[in-house]
């Protein structure tokens, strides 16, 4: 044996570099293209360099009605996030106890991950059509449709976010030391107090993770929305429509702006975490010492 790296290192490094290129290359290309000059188009080469398309974006007269779609997607994402967190945490707690039919229920809940998204979406649309027909025939003769953002659209998104939320909760409670709950009980905590003051604060970072994950899944969901969303569009649907009709780089400016906002939010979160850690470290540590 000699010092130095084996040949496999360079092969793997090359592979990794290719991976990173494919992962971030497209995003980087869009960043660059969003700074096209006023005469620039949707593709390279760059035709000058300007903030023209950002200005156009803020002027609000470039792209059709991105604002309304943005607000719709935001509202839907937030509702999906709330429901996903609430149901996943409750279900995660429930599944810690053994109950009859728990494995069947679990498989039923995650089976929707295997079904192609577009099929799920079509199925939901068909289901709503049947319901609409029944309503029209038996209840209100002037019934239009039950399909909409917060009915069929919400349902379609939840078929996607809930199984993920549940799986994450399983992973969390796998590592959770249930003696902490026993200790709480020993110290007189009611089941609710034990959840509120012990379980929830400990799993909170992961629960926030589920929330963000649920929001993200909903935010960029396309296939499941496509058939089940009803008469209005979410942002991804709107953008997909635009890619076929718009010929200006203001769509890239929009992409750069939203990504930038995401990075700022992530950066702020990291700063807060670092700050809290530093504050706690001030009190010193004897961890691992024999005292």
């Amino acid at each position: 044996m000699r010092e130095g790296r084996p040949r496999s290192f360079y092969l793997l490094a090359l592979f990794f570099a290719a991976y990173v290129l494919f992962l971030y290359g497209p995003m980087f290309a869009i960043f660059v293209l969003s700074f096209q000059g006023p005469q620039g188009g949707l593709t390279f080469p760059m035709n000058g360099f300007s903030l023209h398309w950002f200005a156009k974006l803020f002027a609000g007269n470039g792209i059709v009605d991105i604002g309304a779609a943005f607000r719709r997607s935001m509202a839907l994402g937030l509702v999906v996030m709330l429901i996903t967190v609430t149901l996943s945490v409750s279900a995660g707690m429930a599944f810690r106890k053994k109950f009859k039919g728990s494995s069947i229920l679990f498989y039923a809940a995650i089976a929707s991950l295997i079904v192609p998204s577009i099929v799920t979406s079509l199925g939901i649309a068909l289901e709503f059509r049947i319901i609409d027909d029944l309503f029209k025939r038996y209840i209100f003769s002037d019934w239009q449709t039950g399909m909409g953002l917060f009915t069929s659209g919400l349902g379609a998104h939840l078929t996607w976010t809930l199984p993920f939320g549940l799986l994450i909760m399983f992973a969390i409670f796998n590592r959770f030391d249930s003696r902490l709950e026993e200790a709480a009980r020993d110290l007189g905590a009611t089941p609710w107090q034990s959840f509120r003051f012990v379980v929830l604060p400990i799993i909170l970072p992961s629960v926030i993770g589920i929330g963000l994950f649920g929001f993200t899944l909903s935010w960029d969901e396309l296939a499941r929305s496509s058939q089940a969303i009803g008469s209005v569009n979410t942002l991804p649907l709107e953008l997909q429509g635009l890619t076929t009709t718009v010929t200006n780089p203001d769509i890239y400016a929009l992409g750069t702006l939203t990504t930038g906002v995401s990075f700022v939010v992530i950066g702020l979160c990291l700063c807060i975490i670092l700050l809290l850690q530093r504050r706690q470290a001030k009190f010193g540590s004897d961890a691992g010492k024999g005292v």
Binding site: Q280, F283, G284, S285, D286, A287, K289
Partner: peptide
């Protein structure tokens, strides 16, 4: 301190 900042004893 938090428990993680303490020794076993």
């Amino acid at each position: 301190r938090l428990p993680g900042q303490l020794s076993g004893g």
